[in-house]
Each structure stands twice: as structure tokens, then as C-alpha cells.
């Protein structure tokens, strides 16, 4: 019999020790669980940050491009208005403004911005936004018949969907 242990624990002492052991074991499990959760959270967070950091750099450019697009739209509106005039003297201005538009367009292309093809294409809501649906005997149903506002993408991300008018197909039927 190991009765010579310090303090000579009776049965209560053993119970006490067992209780302590159970409590400490539970605590240990709890702490291990928390540690594992924290580690896992952190690990997943780290992976996500790694995944996101190149995307964040692109997102900054994308935001700026998105804000520049209305300026490009307005340049195009200016050109349309100029072309519509009969004024002889406007020709030189048309050519000049068109050069400005091309300059801005080239800058955007250089940044990887592409216009989303729309006119005559099959309507695709992942890149087009329908603003109107019209009967059109000349076009099959679901064809883009007019572009109200050009759409642009950068790599795979749509910066702005093209605003389009979509054909309902065969006229009055």
C-alpha cells in the first residue's frame, strides 16, 4: 500500500485529486480548442489576405477608372453633338476632340480596360444591363439592339455593365 505519500491522502484526498484532474483536463481541452480556433482563424485570415492583396491593388485602379468613365461618356456625347452640326468650322474641332477621346481611350486600354461588346450581341446580364425591351422584327429575341451607355471591364471584373436596349423579337406577335 502506498500509504507513505506526503500528507497521507485518504479517500477524500484521492477524490479531490481526481476532481482537480478532471477540472484541469477540461480546462486544458478548452484552451486547446480555443488555441486551435484562433490559429485556424488566423491561418484562414492570412490566406485570405494573400489572396486579396493583389486584388486590392487592382480594385484601387478600378475605382478610379469607374469614376473616369462618365467623363469619357460626356466626351463621346460632345463628339456626337459636334458631328450633328452642319457648321463647316466644326470639322477641325471634331477631329481635335476625337483625338482627346482617343487619348483617354488609349490610356484606359493601357490599364487593361476593355469595352464590353454589346451592339448586336446576345443579351447577357452578367455584362449587360437592360434598360428597355422593344419589339424588333429585324432582330431575334434577346438581341442587343441599342447601347445607351457603353460598358467596360478590367480583366474579368465588370467595372460597369453596358446599358442596353434588348429586342423582344418579332414585332407585334
Amino acid at each position: 500500500m502506498p500509504a507513505d505519500e506526503a500528507g497521507a491522502p485518504g479517500p477524500e484526498g484521492v477524490d479531490q485529486t481526481n476532481d482537480d484532474l478532471a477540472r484541469v483536463s477540461a480546462e486544458r481541452d478548452d484552451y486547446l480548442d480555443q488555441l486551435q480556433r484562433a490559429r485556424a482563424d488566423f491561418d484562414n485570415y492570412r490566406k485570405r489576405v494573400e489572396r486579396e492583396s493583389p486584388m486590392l491593388a487592382v480594385a484601387g485602379v478600378r475605382d478610379l477608372v469607374g469614376e473616369l468613365l462618365p467623363v469619357l461618356d460626356n466626351l463621346e456625347r460632345a463628339l456626337e453633338a459636334l458631328v450633328a452640326t452642319d457648321d463647316e468650322g466644326a470639322h477641325g474641332i471634331v477631329a481635335g476632340v476625337d483625338m482627346v477621346r482617343q487619348q483617354l481611350g488609349a490610356l484606359l486600354v493601357g490599364r487593361g480596360v476593355q469595352e464590353i461588346p454589346a451592339h448586336g450581341e446576345a443579351f447577357d446580364p452578367t455584362v449587360h444591363e437592360a434598360v428597355q425591351s422593344v419589339p424588333s422584327p429585324d432582330h431575334p429575341e434577346g438581341t442587343v439592339v441599342a447601347v445607351v451607355e457603353r460598358g467596360y471591364r478590367m480583366s474579368d471584373a465588370v467595372i460597369r455593365p453596358a446599358r442596353v436596349v434588348v429586342s423582344q423579337g418579332g414585332g407585334t406577335r
Binding site: 443579351f123 446580364p125 452578367t126 437592360a130 428597355q132 425591351s133 455593365p161 434588348v166
Partner: peptide, 9 residues
């Protein structure tokens, strides 16, 4: 958003 964009059609 994709569903919303095609709503009018």
C-alpha cells in the same frame, strides 16, 4: 445583381 439587370426583359 445579374438577376436585377435583366429584369426589364
Amino acid at each position: 445583381a445579374v438577376a436585377r439587370r435583366q429584369a426589364v426583359t
